[in-house]
Amino acid sequence: MEELPQVANYVANKLNSHFNGTPEQRRILQALKVQEEAGELAQAVIGALGVNPNKGHSHTWDHVRAEACDTALTALVLLHMLGGDPEWFLTEHLRTIRAKAEGWEATA
């Protein structure tokens, strides 16, 4: 299996090669795409829970997992489009989040 950063970089390069606008426009559209994917994730959760009376159980938890993956990859593609060293930035940000999480109190 390919590493996630390489896949995100590959997808970002492919998308950029098919886009005629400016890099700033591409980044803006990719940020909006993250929001779109998050909306699809929310829709899948609602469908898995069956809380929409018009649709009932329209999704499974595997659908939710797939939408979570799509949302995560789309966000990583944006990170690559923003330039710099996306792997370094992600690693440093995850370290910050982990340090915060270590301070959380457990709830029982």
Rank of each mutant, 00 (worst) to 15 (best):
2 E>K: 11
3 E>I: 15
5 P>N: 09
5 P>E: 04
5 P>Q: 13
6 Q>P: 09
7 V>E: 10
9 N>W: 14
10 Y>K: 14
12 A>D: 03
13 N>R: 15
15 L>P: 01
15 L>Y: 04
17 S>W: 04
18 H>T: 11
19 F>M: 13
20 N>S: 11
22 T>P: 11
23 P>A: 15
24 E>H: 09
26 R>L: 15
28 I>S: 02
29 L>T: 08
32 L>Y: 12
34 V>R: 07
36 E>H: 00
37 E>N: 02
41 L>T: 00
45 V>H: 00
45 V>I: 06
45 V>T: 05
47 G>T: 09
51 V>W: 11
51 V>L: 10
52 N>W: 10
55 K>I: 06
57 H>A: 05
59 H>E: 01
60 T>F: 05
60 T>R: 10
61 W>C: 08
61 W>D: 04
63 H>K: 08
66 A>I: 07
67 E>Q: 02
68 A>T: 02
70 D>G: 01
71 T>S: 05
74 T>Q: 00
75 A>Q: 00
77 V>A: 01
78 L>A: 09
82 L>E: 11
82 L>N: 15
83 G>L: 11
84 G>Y: 09
87 E>Q: 09
87 E>R: 03
89 F>D: 04
90 L>A: 14
92 E>N: 07
93 H>T: 02
93 H>W: 03
94 L>P: 10
96 T>S: 14
97 I>M: 11
98 R>L: 07
98 R>K: 07
99 A>W: 05
99 A>G: 03
101 A>C: 01
102 E>K: 13
103 G>R: 10
104 W>H: 10
104 W>N: 06
107 T>N: 09
107 T>W: 12
